[in-house]
């Protein structure tokens, strides 16, 4: 088992997709910040609204028109992080996971370890664990990048004890949810075993699962059920996680759901991997 993990780790080191996806994620952080800078400049009247392809909604403009303060006063590091975790983190980590997991099946490299003294569940779990570790590393890289860029753009003003407490609790919960989400993606990719389909399905999950759950919520509400599916969906939880003063009930729900999802996806993956033939 340790040997398998060591092999997986070696593959991880050698996989370009890990580096590319991380760099793209960091680039997106930069992109978000540069957008903010531009908006800031528009507000300060330096750039005319609408030029350079940036449109800031009128309401936001009006709200601040009386009292043009720097946008970074209102949007801190945590807000940017919230944006990142809401959309980009899911997309890029799941793209990476799809490539990493399906890479085993593309040329059948998985058959070199299957049926060679290792139980099927060991093979699957080493892949599962290593993919989750890799995606956590990617998200940590993203957090660090956000933090550093945040320092550059908005200065060290808001860095007090409360900020760090919020940062820690927020990122801890997001990382846990993210890990659970990637576990699900690993299981999905294990089942479909094809890079193209894997990436497509993963992106669909990222983009549409909130929509679907919200839709179902509405239907449930229409029938007067007091139950919200979106409270139990990983991606909704990731997007909804408050950046400040997380209340206990939310934290408990997030942790429980993350653990349940991990158990669920791991179980599904192992079951499928155990039963399915290997091409």
């Amino acid at each position: 088992m340790i040997n398998l993990l060591s092999g997986e780790f070696y593959k991880l080191q050698k996989s370009k997709s890990l580096y590319i996806c991380s760099i793209v994620m960091i680039a997106f952080v930069l992109f978000v910040y540069s957008t903010l800078v531009m908006v800031d400049k528009i507000q300060q009247g330096e750039v005319e609204n609408g030029s350079m392809g940036v449109v800031v909604s009128e309401e936001a403009m009006e709200e601040n028109e009386e009292n043009p303060v720097s946008i970074f006063e209102q949007i801190g590091i945590l807000d940017v992080l919230e944006q990142m975790f809401g959309v980009f983190a899911g997309i890029f980590t799941s793209i990476f996971a799809a490539i990493f997991v399906c890479g085993e099946y593309g040329n059948g490299a998985i058959k070199n370890v299957t049926g060679k003294g290792y139980g099927r569940w060991q093979i699957f779990s080493s892949k599962y664990i290593m993919t989750i570790i890799a995606s956590i590393l990617m998200m940590i890289a993203m957090i660090i990048a956000t933090f550093l860029f945040g320092l550059v753009f908005s200065g060290t003003g808001g860095l007090d004890g409360e900020f760090f407490r919020n940062l820690c609790s927020y990122t801890a919960i997001e990382l846990l949810l993210g890990a659970a989400f990637i576990g699900l993606i690993v299981a999905v990719n294990e089942i479909c075993r094809n890079i193209g389909a894997g990436i497509a399905i993963s992106i669909c999950i990222v983009c549409f699962s909130d929509l679907i759950t919200v839709g179902i919520d509405l239907v449930l509400k229409y029938f007067h059920f007091d139950f919200k599916i979106s409270d139990y969906n990983l991606l909704n939880l990731m997007a909804d996680c408050p950046i400040k003063n997380i209340d206990k009930s939310f934290a408990v729900r997030a942790v429980v759901m993350a653990v349940l999802w991990i158990i669920f996806s791991f179980g599904i993956g192992v079951l499928h991997f155990k039963k399915a033939d290997i091409k």
Binding site: N107, G108, A109, K279
Partner: peptide
């Protein structure tokens, strides 16, 4: 074993 194509990582 060497069954069907060699199981290799092409990259």
């Amino acid at each position: 074993t060497l069954i069907e194509n060699p199981g290799v990582y092409v990259n």
